[in-house]
């Protein structure tokens, strides 16, 4: 087999891996949209905020230290010890739950029965607020995130594929972890929604708000629940992306990578987010490999959207989205 074939296969595999990373971000959008019909513009910023909080806790940083020092003339920066990664992740998950409660209490509660566009605009405001809050709480400098995840080329895969095909494949160990985490996350979310009481309530609200309310399901509780889960999913995405590039404010832009995934997979399907991510990841990498050199390269950003648009033409609801039926 020529090297080009193996290289294309390597690109495909890496595209699938990148797609998993996109899907991790897209999952948060799907969860909130499915349960409340809100397109959460703040999902990327939630991932940034979660990652900032995680690093801050791990490093033992005093939140709002710059503000406190400026107001009171103190020089507080650190609490004097570092927090183990696992405990810090649990504490950050707690922060994301508190954030979900606050979002419901101070934003969503006041917007019940408003048009979706109003709710969407509220999440735009939330995104900017959270970005500023993250800056004031933890500072805007780049932070190194190391929760002990392996990084770099998998020597085992490289050696094995070299022995088998005469071509050593590159697969990043972090991407393998991300794929496993995504599989675990989807399984957990599916089991939760199928077999737990809260999960069934969540599905009921997703199907019909009014009917769910009439049987005594608390819409406010469901919103808190779904924003908490989306916050925890954002934390997972933040850990994966932050481990790769450090935690910095550009992390919020990973949402841009999730949009074509949503357009393709559908806004209401968890498997759709995964499959959409895989198709987008693989598609953009293969396009860059085959066509990129002919058009000057750097095609990935726009090609993902073109690919999603093509799918939209044939399936406006996305691959796994609920079928749009309009009756006269």
């Amino acid at each position: 087999m020529p090297d080009t074939f193996w290289f294309a296969l390597e690109v495909t595999l890496n595209g699938l891996m990148a797609g998993v990373m996109y899907a991790l971000v897209a999952l948060g959008f799907v969860l909130i949209f499915k349960a409340s019909g809100i397109f959460n513009y703040a999902q990327g910023v939630l991932a940034l905020f979660a990652a900032l909080t995680l690093v801050g806790i791990m490093e033992g940083q005093v939140p709002f230290s710059h503000l406190i020092n400026a107001v009171f003339g103190t020089s507080l920066h650190h609490i004097g010890f570092k927090v183990p990664a696992l405990l810090a992740i649990l504490l950050t998950a707690g922060v994301m739950v508190i954030l979900a409660v606050l979002v419901e209490r101070y934003i969503l509660k006041h917007l019940v029965n408003q048009e979706p566009i109003i709710l969407f605009m509220a999440t735009i405001g939330l995104a900017y607020f959270l970005e500023g809050l993250g800056d004031v709480m933890w500072g805007a400098d780049i932070k190194t995130l190391d929760v002990g995840l392996p990084k770099g080329i998998s020597d085992t895969i490289e050696a094995t594929t070299y022995d088998l095909f005469g071509y050593g494949f590159f697969i990043d160990k972090l991407d393998i972890v991300a794929a496993l985490v995504a599989a675990l996350l989807v399984t957990t979310l599916t089991l939760f929604s199928q077999y737990s009481k809260q999960g069934r309530a969540l599905r009921a609200v997703a199907d019909d708000h009014q009917a769910a309310l009439s049987v005594g399901i608390s819409l406010r509780f469901i919103w808190v629940l779904v924003w908490s889960i989306a916050g925890i999913v954002a934390l997972v995405a933040g850990i994966m992306w932050g481990s790769k590039s450090g935690v910095q404010f550009s992390l919020s832009l990973i949402a841009l990578k999730a949009l074509p995934v949503l357009m393709l997979g559908g806004f209401t399907s968890i498997p759709g987010a995964i499959v959409g991510g895989l198709i987008i990841g693989m598609g953009e990498k293969l396009f860059e490999f085959f066509i990129g050199p002919l058009v000057g390269g750097a095609t990935e950003n726009w090609f993902a959207y073109v690919l999603a648009l093509v799918f939209l033409v044939f399936r406006p609801q996305g691959l796994f989205g609920e079928r749009i039926i309009e009756r006269v």
Partner: peptide, 19 residues
């Protein structure tokens, strides 16, 4: 020439090419 689009959070293709 190996261009990377803004902001450059994902560069797998570029570095596979370099590899």
């Amino acid at each position: 020439e190996v261009p990377v689009d803004h902001p450059g959070q994902e560069q797998k293709s570029q570095w596979l090419q370099i590899r």
